[in-house]
Design a protein around this nucleic acid. Sequence first.
DNA 1: AAAAAAGTATGATTTATATCAGGTTTTGAG
DNA 2: CTCAAAACCTGATATAAATCATACTTTTTT
Lengths: 227, 227
Amino acid sequence: METYKALNAEQLKDFEALSEVAKKELLASSESIIIPKGTLLFEENEPLTKLYSIEKGACKFSKVDSSGQEHILRFLGAGEVMGKRAVWTQEGAKVSATALTETQLCCFDKDAILKHLEKNPKFCRDFLDALVEDVNINEHIRMIFCIHKGIKYRLAQLLLYLLDKFGADEKGKLRVRLKREDMAPVLGTSQEYIINLLKSFKNFGLIDVIKSEIYIQSQAGLIEMTR
Amino acid sequence: METYKALNAEQLKDFEALSEVAKKELLASSESIIIPKGTLLFEENEPLTKLYSIEKGACKFSKVDSSGQEHILRFLGAGEVMGKRAVWTQEGAKVSATALTETQLCCFDKDAILKHLEKNPKFCRDFLDALVEDVNINEHIRMIFCIHKGIKYRLAQLLLYLLDKFGADEKGKLRVRLKREDMAPVLGTSQEYIINLLKSFKNFGLIDVIKSEIYIQSQAGLIEMTR
DNA sequence: AAAAAAGTATGATTTATATCAGGTTTTGAG
DNA sequence: CTCAAAACCTGATATAAATCATACTTTTTT
């Protein structure tokens, strides 16, 4: 694991209102690391000693149910902070966090964060704001990957969500590449069915699939599918 | 709307760590109301001037998507507080709240709450705790009403959830009665299919249905269905 | 460069769920 | 108590999605 000092405070999107002084102080005690694609950053029930802010890359939050099925709860990108609940409650993490791509993280020491929370009401306010936002995001995700609509609809939502959140290159190729196996549990279906649907999306000219990379051809068409 | 003074501080389950003094002070400025079954307490985007704690009864949080479909996000019972986010952010509510049964609420003035949050770090801590819990609950609900398993499984989960959360009388009759029309959007299916499944549950001896009221006959059997 | 492994693709079959067009029971207002 | 409205139920048919067996492609390892 390569480590080096974080360079700026811009990454703390989740803590926007934090005073400059506090930001500098927190960052002074932080370190930046790069983890490769697929790394399990922390696991459900694991006690955390760090709070992680994503500087570059993409991660997912997931849980495994009693029957071993993986539930993907949300995706996270630059500026989003992982580990807030575990740091606040000092209990084990409630979710597992995994890197979807090579990811650069800024790591803050739990105790430094807790100290700041105690003596800095402004920081505490930011923390509350971030948690409110987490509730909002959870609800939003539930709406777009909802159980009311068919899987075609949810797949269109997923593609639009990935495009919006992580972007695409000039040819429309999604920046975050998910294995079909990783897309399936987001939508609550099987690999095979997703592949069948991707093919039909391709036939309709909505996307293109080249070497299993997905290229968005018609954002408008995908949006149309979500109505 | 009948109104009278709230009698005790026990109902503030969401704010357990609140000091006795603070509790008394808050309660002094509160009023208790009773709203009939079906009342829309507040609606998505509506600015709130109150924070509501459920003293008795049951409510639901829901959202309506662009196609008019209702998404039920969670159910709430005694001790749970509604309106936290709207009070904190001073923005419109993100969800609609509706009474499922006749419900007794303790209403706190938004400004009194905000004042307390500012000058009382302990209360602020409770508020944060309650929001952390909201994130946990959202995740839990997503797991049990998940898109991975069939509707039989989700219906069993719903019945167990209602039994656990709101209880049943000595004959096993669920205390909270949901219309089939209200159960459908929780599970992401149609009334008719729910009715068909309830019938098959009845045939298996898991439940009984008398005058459309549901009686839990075999909790163990229902649990078995969720595996 | 070849072999192995991991990931992707196909399409037929089976099962779960949605939908529809009715009919029956329950509830609540007058 | 009566009647209309609302809620509930039925079962057949149509559709969506799961599953399975198999084969191909790409990536990784040696």
